[in-house]
Amino acid sequence: MTVKKKRPQKSLAAGRPPVLHRPKSISRKSTKALINRVHLLEKRKQQAKSKGDIAEEAAINAEIKALGGLERYQEASLQGQRHDRGGDSSRVLMEWLEPCLSAHELSPDRPHLRMLEVGALSTQNACSKSGYFEIERIDLNSQAGGILQQDFMERPLPRDDSKRFDVISLSLVLNFVPDPRGRGDMLSRTTQFLRAPEQGLGSESLKANFPSLFLVLPAPCVANSRYLDEERLAAIMESLGYSKVASKTTQRLVYYLWKRDPNFTGPGRPFSKKEIRLGPLRNNFAVVLG
C-alpha cells in the first residue's frame, strides 16, 4: 500500500496575484548626482548654442536623454520633497505667512490670494492644502493633472490685475536656468506678474507681505559662489523693487520671501558677473541684470 505524501499546506496568500512592488526610491547620493549632472549639461548646452556648435548641442541632448531626460530629473526632484529629505519647501512659506493670514478675514474657506507656482511638481503641497490660495501651477514638463505645461519665460504677460498674482513661487527653479543673464531675466519678469494689494486686503500685516516672491535655491548658490553672496543677492533684488521679509538657511537650501513695492518704477541698477569671492572650490552660480 502506497502512503500518500502529505502536501505542504499553502497559505491564503499563495492564491493571490503577485503583489506589485514599487521601485525603490533614488538614493540621496544618486539624486544629488543626477540633478548636478543635468544642471552641468544644461549649462554646457547653452554655451554650445551660443557658439552655434550644433554637433556639441546634439551630443549634450543625447547625454541628457540617456540620463532619462527632464522626466528623470523631475523624479529626482520629487524624491527631494520627501519628508526624510527636507520635504516640501512650501511648508516654510506657510510658516511665514500663516500668522498674517489667520489673523484677518482671510480664511481657508474663502481663498482671496492668487499664487503662481513655477516649476510645480505636485498639487498636494502645503500651500495647496492650506486653502488660502487660488493657485495656478506651471512646469516645463507637467507630471500631474492640475499643472499646466508652460515655460514661464513664454507665458503671456498679464493685461490687467485680474491676471496677476499676490505671490509667485520660484522653488528650485532659478538654479535650473543655465546662464546668469537668463536668471536675471527670470527675476525681472516676475515683477510683471505681481499685482498691488487689493483694497480688501488692506491690513498692515498683509501689506507687509504682499505682493511677494518666494525664492528657494540650493545653499551653495549663495554660500559658496564666486559671483553671489547674501549682500549681492539683496542688492540685485532691491534693484527690482524687492525687499527681504524673511529668510532661512539650512544645510541644503536657502529660502527667501521678497516683498515688492508696487509703486516701484525702476529701472534699477545693472549687475554684471563680478567675482566677489576667491578660491578654487567655489562654484560659478551668478545672476546678471541689465
Rank of each mutant, 00 (worst) to 15 (best):
R226I: 04
L194D: 00
H83V: 11
L289V: 14
R252S: 11
R164E: 06
R82Q: 12
G80L: 10
A286G: 05
P211Y: 00
Q149G: 12
S225M: 04
L34T: 05
G80V: 04
P180D: 06
V288P: 01
M153D: 09
H21C: 12
F176M: 13
M94F: 11
V287S: 06
F165L: 05
L215A: 04
Y255K: 03
K29D: 13
P197W: 00
P178N: 03
E198H: 09
Y256A: 04
K51R: 13
A196R: 11
Q79A: 13
P158R: 04
A33Q: 12
L40K: 15
S50Q: 14
G69M: 02
L240K: 04
L253N: 10
Q150N: 08
K65L: 15
A234P: 04
R91S: 08
A58K: 13
L70H: 11
E275I: 15
A62R: 11
S272Q: 15
G184E: 08
I236P: 00
G241P: 09
G87N: 01
D229K: 08
H21D: 13
P180L: 05
I138P: 00
Q150L: 09
Q150F: 06
I54R: 15
D179I: 05
F264N: 06
L93G: 01
P8V: 11
K4S: 12
H112Q: 15
T31L: 14
G266K: 15
M237K: 04
G87C: 02
L281F: 13
N209I: 09
P197G: 02
M237D: 02
H39C: 06
S225W: 00
L172T: 06
K163Q: 12
S171R: 01
L213P: 00
Q124F: 12
C221K: 04
A48W: 00
R282N: 07
R195N: 03
S102E: 08
A66G: 09
G52K: 01
R85K: 12
E238W: 13
Q150P: 01
L278M: 11
Q251H: 11
S122T: 10
R181V: 10
A246W: 02
K129W: 01
L67I: 03
S90E: 02
D88L: 01
S130M: 00
M237G: 01
I64C: 03
S27K: 08
L157D: 08
R82C: 09
V254R: 08
T191C: 09
S142D: 03
E95S: 15
F271T: 03
A55T: 12
A196E: 09
L215T: 02
G241Y: 02
R277P: 07
K65W: 10
P280E: 03
A219L: 07
A235R: 09
M237Y: 06
L201P: 00
L116K: 02
R37V: 01
L215Y: 01
E117I: 07
K29W: 15
E204L: 09
L278H: 13
I35A: 06
H21M: 14
R252P: 03
D109V: 12
T190M: 05
Y255M: 07
A235E: 10
V19M: 13
P267R: 15
D139C: 06
H112Y: 14
